[in-house]
Design a protein around this nucleic acid. Structure first.
Lengths: 310, 310
DNA sequence: ACGTCTTACGTTACACGTAAGGATG
DNA sequence: CATCCTTACGTGTAACGTAAGACGT
């Protein structure tokens, strides 16, 4: 294919203007340049495209045929390019996010709402999966990125820390401990405890904190999903140790959370993507929005805590 | 559109081979050249097309989309180019010839038959029109070219002489004059004459010849079409003065023709085309075939005459 | 004689190849 | 360590603009 797009554009411009000079002006090149482009194209195709005298420029049969097909081709190509540029400009696109059920319900929907306001053309799919499945969903390319807690060097993924989140104690608003700005691990044994099930990362963190505070905890109930645990707390069955971002689900139950200190146990909320895979424009914008959203959430939590401190 | 076809080809090659090196070999360029083409294309479109490590090259979402549409575009363009090349190579095309009824029946069909053997893909349409309409059919672009007798500078057309043809006398094979190799205008008055109608070019030529021989002719019958005149001759109603190429229609009636001399009256069989309009490849090939065919016809006529001279 | 396409020529820019650098598995 | 992509650099080509020529109206 020894024909360049410029030549085809030149050809179409001449065909449209029925004049080399006018087409040259239209294309912003000198008129002899156009003559040459057309000539080379004709010699390449072996047919004269225009019957030209100094007074008239008209398409030949071959030119007419080529104009019909090539103008359609140029149009299609224009669309293809525009579509791709739209992807780049976030006017269009698709994001598939894998996240744990808690994140999917507590954080992602609000981030999506904020994102959708800025980028209404972008389609978002949330794949809510058990925490341990998120990595493999991302590696298997069932999701463009994953949200959760991941250690620094897991296989096949690259990790970016979005936010550091601490464990807190969740309890009914009228619970005695709710009067304090902080809760110490030492306070826990006095109260019936609702824990996550043993294979959960939250459970492991909780036990880590308890161990560091030299406490041995005896959960009275276990739940495998955070919402279940929250419902138990709401029912007055006990208190629960959970990541503070679960607060956004706890509001509706009239629960409060207080930071657990001595020690403060934190986990990193991370974004992961498949190794070597670049973020699509849409995804990278989404992450920015998500970061802002998380930051705002932390601030408002702090704010709320501060007010209650007074 | 600042993207070149080469870039799209490069892109498709990389997408296909999943390797810059392999694609570069395939395209016959050095591998860094490809890197640059892809890079510029990506910066032009604003999106990364490939996720590439040194070990893997894979399409991004945007790349996948662009591949789908651009490969289709390239295919279409390839077809458009091939179609145009086919026109140039006479594998395809269309010829519209305007010719008088006599030419359309006496000469064109045989020329077409010969042409069709060499260029089976070309579609030919014959527009048989009265001699005086042929010019305007060509000017109005209802025909690509016209065959007939035209004076040197008629409006809107360019003329090329294909063959010089003489008037001859047509008579039954057993006619007394058939014994001679030539017939003189002086011989005519002795025989009942079948003439073309007064508005015909042949009639005017006939009267020109008669005048030059100081004869006044009194046609016994008049016909407006040559085939009619030939039928009259065949019926023994007289002799007719006609262009010698009418012989190809006269054979079937068992007629003969003899050149009319003293003077020899000739007319040019011409090809015309609209001024400034180039001949399409197919038409120019057809004219070559037609020329050869006419030459062959003249030779065989001469040959026949010579044999009869012996 | 004017406007328009073509040819000729010189300059500039850019495309490409070679060679070195860096990353990945 | 081998392979593959990227960066850097120099050279040659070819694309373009200017100016002169040819052509038709």
């Amino acid at each position: 294919m020894r024909i360049a797009l410029k030549q085809i554009e030149a050809f179409l411009a001449v065909a449209e203007h029925k004049s080399f000079s006018a087409a040259a002006r239209h294309m912003g090149v000198a008129q002899p340049a156009l003559s040459i482009m057309i000539r080379e194209m004709e010699s390449e195709l072996g047919v004269r495209m225009f019957d030209r005298t100094t007074r008239r420029v008209e398409l030949t049969q071959a030119g007419e045929e080529f104009r019909a097909s090539s103008s359609k081709v140029m149009e299609d190509l224009g669309h293809a390019i525009q579509n791709t540029r739209d992807l780049a400009a976030r006017k269009r696109g698709r994001i598939r996010i894998a996240a744990s059920p808690l994140l999917s319900s507590a954080i992602v929907p609000f981030a999506i709402a904020a994102f959708h306001k800025d980028y209404p053309g972008i389609n978002i799919e949330v794949l809510d999966a058990p925490n341990q499945d998120i990595r493999e969903e991302v590696v298997a390319n069932n999701a463009d990125c994953g949200l959760g807690t991941f250690s620094a060097h897991e296989e096949g993924i690259e990790r970016t820390v979005l936010m550091r989140d601490n464990l807190g104690l969740f309890m009914p608003a009228d619970h005695p401990l709710a009067g304090n700005a902080f809760v110490r691990w030492d306070d826990l044994p006095q109260w019936p405890l609702i824990a996550m099930s043993r294979n959960s990362g939250i459970r492991r963190l909780m036990e880590l904190g308890a161990e560091q505070a030299s406490q041995i905890l005896h959960p009275k109930f276990e739940a495998s999903m955070v919402t279940t645990a929250l419902a138990f707390v709401a029912a007055g069955l006990g208190v629960a140790v959970l990541p503070t971002y679960a607060m956004s689900r706890a509001d509706q139950y009239n629960l409060v959370s207080r930071p657990l200190v001595d020690p403060t146990v934190s986990r990193d909320l991370c974004l992961i993507r498949a190794t070597g895979k670049s973020l699509s424009p849409a995804v990278s914008s989404f992450i920015t929005v998500l970061r802002n959203h998380l930051q705002g959430m932390l601030l408002s939590n702090d704010h709320r805590n501060k007010i209650q401190d007074l």
